[in-house]
Design a binder for these strands. Structure first.
Lengths: 140, 140
DNA sequence: CTCATTTAGTTTTATATCAAACTATTTATC
DNA sequence: GATAAATAGTTTGATATAAAACTAAATGAG
């Protein structure tokens, strides 16, 4: 029975992480987006131009969800959308200047969150955790 | 950067677990409820009578969410609600006969899911995983 | 070249979810 | 006992989310 607790723990940790991130973003004056929007912005910080399909894969959300998420980010002025010249079906998403300004805040929030996440967790434990989780992930 | 992948892995694993459970339930003819409803039913299988507040804590969902979830289960005939005699604010939730009939299916789906989840994961690894996750959970 | 199939993204629909506000009840304080 | 504060659960409003259906465009097959 205790083994079932791992799944419960996973859910709870994920929630705590999300709450932490939202709380920190709010502290930094960003309260108009959720964690999924943040994931998109974060992805675009790493790769300046992504298609909707890229984003969908990156953040592991359904295409239709990405449409709504990105449209909100467009409305808020954080990203722009642009059709590809060669293939009219493809839409590229990129950060605006306003979006790019979030970079330092995102990096610090991310770092803070990881500090809390891994507090008292040794390097060996990190690797062990990652290894086991990968194993589990590949079981499905 | 790879350390950030743990959080991504956690999210993905949770999703895979949910999909697996829903898929198995559907195979067994249960396609009218989601995983959160399942969590409530499961909790009631272990403890025959719970208050809404108990359930909210058990499944880690907001009270208002529990109201909606339980109301759907009532509509579907899986549970009943009953006001406490002593304290008129308190509502008890219990499985109906129909709800109780799900027990064997739930147990087998749960067992199957855990089999898949822990395939190739040793007993030692299980304990290690649990230990590290608890540590992380308590960091927030 | 024509038609069938696939693909990228959007639209539509339904639902789970949270949080604030609310109602009714109980408990605490004076 | 009267009033304030706290509590249990519900209602309300907003939103993220998935999946089906759809549109337009590209690719594949004959």
């Amino acid at each position: 029975m205790e083994t079932r607790d791992v799944i419960s723990l996973i859910s709870k940790i994920r929630e705590k992480v999300n709450r932490f991130i939202l709380s920190e973003l709010t502290k930094n004056g960003i309260d108009d987006i959720g964690t999924s929007h943040g994931d998109i912005i974060y992805a675009l910080m790493k790769t300046p131009k992504l298609t909707m399909a890229d984003i969908s894969k990156r953040i592991n959300k359904d295409k239709s969800t990405v449409t709504a998420l990105v449209d909100k980010l467009v409305r808020l002025g954080y990203v722009t959308k642009e059709r590809d010249k060669e293939d009219a079906r493809v839409v590229y998403v990129a950060l605006t200047d306003k979006g790019s300004e979030l970079e330092s805040i995102f990096e610090s929030v991310s770092a803070e969150m990881l500090d809390v996440f891994y507090l008292n967790v040794s390097e060996q434990e990190k690797q062990e955790l990652l290894r086991i989780l990968k194993k589990i992930y590949n079981n499905f």
